[in-house]
Amino acid sequence: MFLRELYNYRHLLREIVVKNIKIQYRRSVLGVFWTFLQPLLTTLVLVAIFGKLFGGNARDTVNYPIFVLTGRLLYEFFSQSTKRAMRSVTLAASVIRKVRLPKYIYPLANVISVFVTFLISLIVLVCFLVFFLFWGDAPPVLGWHVLLTPVPLAILFLLCTGVGFILATLTVFFKDVEYLYDVFCLILFYATPIMYSPARLGAGKWTQLALQANPLYSIVEMFRDCVLRGRLLNPHHLLYALGFSLVTLALGGLLFWRKQEKFILHL
């Protein structure tokens, strides 16, 4: 039943995804280049500032610029897609009030459109990899493991969709969730090993555990296993991230499904 409904509304899903991407690129003068420029510039800044501090030990980071870029890209996808999904239902209020349609289309379409731009931005990573492979004294270790990159990305997609559903539902009822989530994302940025290697943090056992509870930790580290360290996915990370994401998606989907009839009373 659910799948048939999704199939019936595939046109709407497609239209919203295409619209989001088109409008994003139309709004800025730089267009697609902004997708490359933004992670490039922020990575350069982070490398310039923290390179000496965190980049010294090549055992964990292998290549600090790539290390930072991978973390940045994944974190950016997470925060952008969940924020867009959060606002999607309230932004579509005028339609939802009048037309009967599956409301989950809105958060889902927004996560998908950010995912597409994220995939485009991976071109920057490819450039980085090629550059450091030939020039530079700390080349990334690239092997067949690169073929495993879809695994962490798929898990991240599930996680974002689940979190998106939860946030979209909450913002319908509570307007301040948006601000609280902004703060949450800021904390998450520092709690995720984007600029630092967790092993080198010298943190105590409990701090380490707290950091590892963050599913982005596992996902980012798995992604780095694929494109930077050239080794198999850590099975602990894989199980934890996959389990966490599936549970979040199930909870988010359930919450959204059970509350969606009430949306209209609050929009």
Binding site: H11, L12, K19, V99
Partner: peptide
Amino acid sequence: GAGFDMNYTGRENVFLYGATMGY
């Protein structure tokens, strides 16, 4: 104006609006 995206052209909105109605 509901069902329209303001940053979209008239032509694009025809298709968006249509999709909202399931077409």
